[in-house]
Amino acid sequence: MSGALFLERGLTAAQAMGWMQLLLAFAIAQQSLEHLALGALALRDRMIFVSRLLLCLGLALGLGGPWPVWGLWGSGLALLWRYQGPYNGGSDKMTMLILSCLSLAYLAPTIFWQEMALSYLAVQLALSYFVSGWVKVINPEWRSGSALRDVFRFSAYPVSEALRGLAERQRLLWIMGWAVILFELVFPLALLNPIALKLALLGAAGFHLSNACFFGLNRFFWIWLCAYPALIWFQDRIF
C-alpha cells in the first residue's frame, strides 16, 4: 500500500474503538505504574491503581467485553474523589472524557447512539485545539509573545532552570507562540481531507511531544493520542 493510500484510509467505528482501547490500556497502565512507584500509598489508593492495571491488561487483551472500560470509568471517578479533582489536570480530564464516551458507546442501544458518543469525543478533541488557540489569539499578551515568555520565565512548568533562558529569546518565542496559535486555530479545517487530518494529527503529536520535553507533560502526549482514532473515524464518517 502506498503512503498516500494509507493516509487516505479511514476507520470503522469498531476499529476506532479497538485502537482507542489498546492505546488507553497503555496510557492508563503508564499512569498507574507512576502512582505506584511513588510508594507510601494508602491501601485504598494502592488497590485502585492495581485494579486499574488489571483492567488495562483486560482491555489490551480484549477480555471481558466492555467491563474493563466501565471498570476504568468507575475507578476514574474514585480517583477524582480521592484527589478532589484531577491529579494531572487536562490529561486526567481527557482520560475520563474518553472513558465516558467509550462507556456510553458500549451502553448505546443502537448504532446511531454509539456513533453519537464517538462523535462527541471527536468534536471535543477538535475543540481542545481550537478553543486553546482562540483563548490565546484574543489575548494581547499571547499575540505580543510576552505570555509565552512568562511561561518560560516564572511558571512552574519548565523542567530545568536552563530552559528559563529561553525567555530571553524573544523573537524565537514570538514565532513559536504564533505557530502554536495558528496551528490550533486551523486544526478543525483538517477534517475536510483525510490526508490533511493525518498530517495535522502528526503535527499535534509533535506539539504534545515538545510540551512533554519542555514542561514534563508526558501524560498529555499519550492520552491525546488515545483519542485520535475517534477523529479519524469521524472524518471518514462525516466528510
Binding site: V159, S160, L163, A212, C213, G216, N218
Partner: peptide, 29 residues
Amino acid sequence: PRPQHLRLGQMLRWMLWNPQWNEQLYLVS
C-alpha cells in the same frame, strides 16, 4: 527545586517515566 540542566536523553526518558514530576505538578494544583 528543578535541576539546572536536563539532557535530551533524560527528557525523552521522561516521556515514559516521570512520577516525581507529575507529583510536583499535582502539588502545584
